[in-house]
Write a protein that binds this DNA or RNA. Structure first.
Length: 708
DNA sequence: TACCTTGGCGCC
DNA sequence: AAAAGGCGCCAAGGTA
């Protein structure tokens, strides 16, 4: 077996796109090819390699690297990479492996950290890394090789180490993974990484002109609402020392609604200099604002003394209770002004700033979340408004290239199907397979005078506005329950009575008893499997952030406190974590929040997390394995199907118009066939397929259902 | 200036 | 420090 460790040193590029492939000016200046731990080749080019590999990959069985997404995205369009992947070539990313081996606790590990952890090698402060940090990239170093021979020697040593280290780490990781039965799950997430790279490199088309126009429109709207709101508050905002009323300031909003103090800074003359110029000093004082005098009991105290929360929920309560028409109007204006500003800056502006020639290349963070879900940033493509007034405008900025269609394929009720799979609840499975509307079932829990059929007719056939709305509430409850929320939180997000929500939970537990009990069974299992936290997995020298925040996420034997605030450092009192291993071998860690009581640690674990982590985590595995399944075809049929984005249970594509039907049929069949993939990868029997819905359109704001 | 925390809100 | 379903981003306000 030939293993190859691949690593590139690149230029640094602009501050917007960093050192990644996104910046068109960036290139590779050194290629490090380490074969089987002993044969290391360094290839340098002062002109850059023009994003191509120096060698073929024909005799390579496994490519190893740390954060391979970075390197492979540079050479994704190289023929050698293409044929390697199409012929089933595999990768082992030590960052991905470490993430899974630690139960998703070690996020974005650095090579230096793993070097310490596995090889006990302390990375000496390197001149090379220091240069990189200063913005001096490999291009400059390679070009200076004859001028700076000492630096050049150092650089070559640095490169060589970076090539060999991942191979050494891989061998140890593999041993650990075999012991824990984690090889299949690590292979899955490595395959998934290839699909993620493919998505990232493809990019998402935006209509830049429309984006700029929408940005301007939203800003204009913001200013209009702001002006009206400012006009209303002007009679409460009279003190000349006050700054301009700022509708985005939590301080200002709290003060104007509930009354409060606003800190102001004034320049005060405190004498004269020798040259006769006046001497000033900044004096801080507070100005009292009475505002609308809304009773603060409607809200909740903020962290800052004397300030209160002003979120949407509270604003709605105020608007519905007040008899002051001006206040009522202000509530609506504040909301609109803020929403337009958010829509403009968080989305339109970010899209414009982040795009490169009309294409967005978001970061898909694959070693970040606790549950192994993907996360997205710069821009975040997973939280673009959909249901509110901006949903259509914002999504319609994402357009299909000429001759192509936008396609979105969603798993329907993925979390519920996952719950059925994990719990094996017979009735739930039957209901899902029969197409029973679970939201209507839940509506029935607190409308006992009506049967399922009657309610179904009212909601879905007659589309009675009242019952349709009731079903929407029930739907929200359904999803909240699936996410593992407790009744209180459901009340907060739906506005339903606590009594009703509790009844729903109660009846749900009766109806789908095995499914409802799933979380408890995880918790029981996990409570039996309490381990010490991972101890010195990351040495202190690698702590990051203030006070080593990375460590506090579970890498240190944390001291714990008793009810009187006494600190216990003894081994037997150290914090422990619960570990639960899922069907597929993925490990989840749960923080033990227990305290010391009479000298002994009483374990205590959250009720919601044990339910949520395996559900969310398994859902993400299904997303990962189905996406990975598409990769080869996406490469071979790259002129017909391009995958561009994922949002947890949905996948975004461009599909060429003239081959739409066969492509969509193939995509749907492949994605829905989770049993086939589960069997192949994990040897697990899954008794049902996972149904998907397809939508198509010319842009992602104007999509219509498509039946294959 | 650069970085951190808080409040608030978008998505699944 | 505890504890929460999982995330990321922006603006404000504060600190070094």
């Amino acid at each position: 077996m030939n293993i190859l460790s691949l690593d590139f040193e690149t230029s640094i590029g602009t501050t917007i796109h960093g050192s990644t492939f996104r910046d068109p000016n960036n290139d590779i200046y050194t290629q490090i090819w380490a074969y089987n731990e002993y044969e290391v080749q360094l290839h340098h080019s002062g002109r850059g390699f023009n994003k191509t590999l120096v060698n073929r990959l024909d005799d390579v069985d496994l490519i190893i690297g740390h954060n391979l997404g970075f390197d492979l995205s540079y050479v994704w369009y190289d023929n050698a990479v293409y044929s390697y992947i199409v012929n089933g070539g595999k990768i082992w990313d030590t960052q991905v492996a470490e993430y899974l081996l630690t139960g998703q606790q070690h996020q974005f590990s650095s090579l230096a950290e793993l070097q310490l952890k596995y090889l006990d090698e302390v990375e000496k402060p390197s001149r090379i890394s220091a240069l990189y940090k200063k913005g001096i990239g490999a291009d400059a170093i390679v070009q200076a090789q004859y001028r700076c021979p000492r630096l050049w020697k150092l650089y070559n040593k640095y490169c060589k180490t970076d090539g060999i280290t991942p191979i050494k780490i891989y061998k140890l990781q593999k041993k650990r993974a075999e012991k824990l039965g984690m090889i299949p799950i690590i292979e899955l997430y490595n395959d998934y990484l290839l699909s993620i790279i493919n998505m990232t490199v493809t990019g998402i088309s935006i209509d830049v002109v429309k984006c700029e126009k929408t940005f301007r429109d939203f800003n204009l709207k913001h200013l209009q609402y702001l002006a009206q709101a400012t006009n209303i508050v002007s009679k409460y905002w009279t003190d000349g020392a006050l700054p301009t009323f700022n509708i985005n300031s939590p301080d200002h909003k709290s003060a104007i609604l509930f009354g409060g103090n606003i800190k102001v800074v004034e320049k005060k003359e405190i004498g004269v200099y020798k040259n006769g110029n006046p001497r000033f000093k900044n004096i801080e004082r507070v100005v009292r604002v009475d505002g609308f005098r809304v009773p603060a009991t409607i809200s909740r105290p903020a962290k800052k003394l004397g300030l209160y929360a002003t979120d949407d929920k509270i604003m709605q309560t105020i608007a519905s209770k007040t008899k002051n028409p001006q206040l009522k109007e202000y509530c609506e204006l504040q909301k609109q002004a803020m929403m337009y500003k958010k829509a403009a800056n968080t989305y339109c502006k970010a899209f414009i700033d982040r795009s490169v020639d009309g294409l967005l290349y978001p970061n898909f963070n694959n070693t970040l979340t606790t549950t192994s879900r993907l996360s997205s940033s710069a821009p975040n493509m997973q939280n673009i408004s959909k249901r509110n007034q901006f949903g259509k405008d914002l999504h319609s900025l994402f357009v299909a290239p000429t001759g192509w269609k936008c396609v979105q394929i969603d798993f329907s009720q993925l979390e519920i199907w996952v719950l059925a799979l994990l719990s094996g609840d017979k009735l739930l499975i039957k209901h899902l397979l029969d197409g029973v509307d679970l939201h209507v079932v839940r509506l029935g829990y607190y409308n006992e005078d009506k049967t399922y059929d009657e309610l179904y007719k009212l909601c879905k056939v007659d589309k009675d506005p009242y019952w349709d709305k009731q079903r929407t509430y029930a739907k929200t409850v359904s999803y909240q329950m699936a996410y593992g929320a407790m009744p209180k939180k459901v009340v907060a997000s739906t506005g339903l009575d606590l009594g009703i929500v509790e009844k729903i939970f109660e009846k749900e537990a009766e109806t789908y008893s095995e499914a409802s009990n799933f979380g408890n069974s995880v918790r029981d299992l996990m409570q039996e499997n309490v381990n010490f936290s991972l101890g010195m997995d990351i040495p202190n020298s690698q702590k990051k952030g203030k006070g080593g925040s990375r460590i506090s996420k579970g890498y240190e034997l944390l001291p714990i406190f008793d009810n009187s605030g006494n600190v216990f450092y003894n081994e037997e009192h150290r914090r422990k974590v619960g570990i639960y291993t899922s069907l597929t071998g993925k490990r989840y860690h749960f923080l033990n929040t227990g305290k010391v009581y009479k000298g002994e640690l009483k374990s205590s674990f959250s009720f919601t997390q044990p339910k949520n982590y395996p559900m969310q985590g398994t859902a993400s595995e299904i997303q990962a394995m189905t996406t990975a399944e598409l990769l080869k075809a996406c490469l071979i049929k790259g002129d017909r199907i391009k995958m561009i984005n994922e949002v947890h249970d949905s996948k975004w594509f461009y599909v060429r118009e003239d081959v739409l039907e066969p492509c969509l049929k193939w995509l749907k069949d492949t994605i829905e066939d989770v049993p086939k993939i589960m069997l192949k990868r994990f040897g697990l029997e899954v008794p049902f397929k996972f149904p998907c819905d397809i939508e198509i359109g010319n842009d992602f704001g104007n999509m219509e259902k498509y039946n294959v």
